[in-house]
Design a protein around this nucleic acid. Structure first.
Lengths: 196, 196
DNA sequence: TACTATACGGAGGCACCCTCCGTTTGTCAA
DNA sequence: TTGACAAACGGAGGGTGCCTCCGTATAGTA
């Protein structure tokens, strides 16, 4: 997540003292684990308990629930960005499609991550900017290549594409194959067509 | 919305005594007003206060927050269904498009309504079934006509189309014109195309 | 009017978010 | 190694919100 030049370390500046740094990591790990298992609604008290720290300690490191969620999901976003590299060769349409499908599958089960991402795309806090920059650095080449090849309509930008995909990913999935079908339909709308 | 499992009339049956019926309406009106003004997060205590009833009274009529939200939004859904009638003539593609655009504009500012709708589309509680049936009765002719005319791909159903549109409507709108552009792209994916 | 089923209302239980502040501990200079 | 202190800890408790319980009030009826 260092597309903007400033390192993540600066933005997330760790606490100084050794025990503080240790506790920071423990809380983050417990949160990641708890959100994965029990859903994003796990209480902060529960997370503090899992981490073996007091609730006060949790709150010194993460001033509120939102901050903790964001810290957890910065990693996830990094994963999404990295996965773009796997699609940098081959057919432009298939590459873009592949990444977006991966993106959706990745998000699918994590409603909270999806909600965060939607905010990243517009909000302007420093951490958001950084995530946004990374996502764009990852996705823009794929989209640009597809547009240059003339297989994707030229009047869309990555922000729109990602909003669309994330919006679909957030559909409460009773049947994952249906959600995937909806994505295919929407992505079909991206294709360049000479007529009309 | 209990599992008593009887008819819809029973489920929507108003309280018997005059004061009860009066209070039911007062709470519903206060809730509608409060959700419209202050966002869907208004507390139930606040709504009871506005309605001039005790919190206990509110809870007898609406067993939980969700039930109150749903009761408020049944009206809104009816409005959406009615608007389908305006599009029953003319070009099939434009008709479907028009209704879906109307649907999205209608939902746009009401995130809570959108969330409810997404559930209506799948859940199977009696009231949901009812809303779902109304929405389908309204939208299915429009979609069917467009498919029969060969302008919409035959492998989509109304459930998918509505999930897609609502998913896009839920995108946090920093710029409404962008959201509308995204909708146009996605709807473009619905068009029938002979090639590939 | 008197009686009863129905409905009212708000105190209070519970869970959660977050703050405050007395206590503990890592760090570093002497 | 030790002493001093800034830094960090931790949990009691304040505030709020959802919802329940039950004593009180009242509409409807004979």
């Amino acid at each position: 997540m260092n597309a903007a030049g400033t390192s993540t370390e600066t933005l997330l500046a760790r606490p100084q003292r050794a025990d503080a740094r240790r506790n920071y990591e423990k809380v983050l790990a417990a949160a990641r684990e708890a959100f994965a298992e029990g859903g994003e609604s796990t209480s902060l008290e529960e997370i503090a308990r899992r981490a073996g720290v007091g609730i006060g300690t949790l709150y010194r490191h993460f001033p509120n629930r939102q901050a903790l969620l964001e810290a957890v999901y910065v990693n996830e976003v990094e994963g999404i960005c990295r996965s773009a590299a796997e699609f940098d060769g081959g057919d432009p349409w298939e590459s873009l499609n592949g990444w977006l499908e991966r993106l959706m599958a990745y998000i699918g089960t994590k409603q909270a991550l999806a909600a965060e991402l939607q905010h990243y795309l517009d909000k302007d806090a420093a951490l958001f900017q950084d995530c946004r920059a990374s996502l764009f650095a990852a996705g823009e080449p794929l989209l640009g290549r597809a547009q240059d090849a003339g297989v994707v309509r030229p009047d869309v930008d990555l922000s729109e594409v990602m909003h669309m995909v994330i919006g679909i990913a957030k559909i409460p999935a009773t049947d994952p194959s249906q959600t995937e079908h909806i994505l295919r339909i929407a992505l079909d709308g991206l294709r360049y067509r000479a007529d009309t």
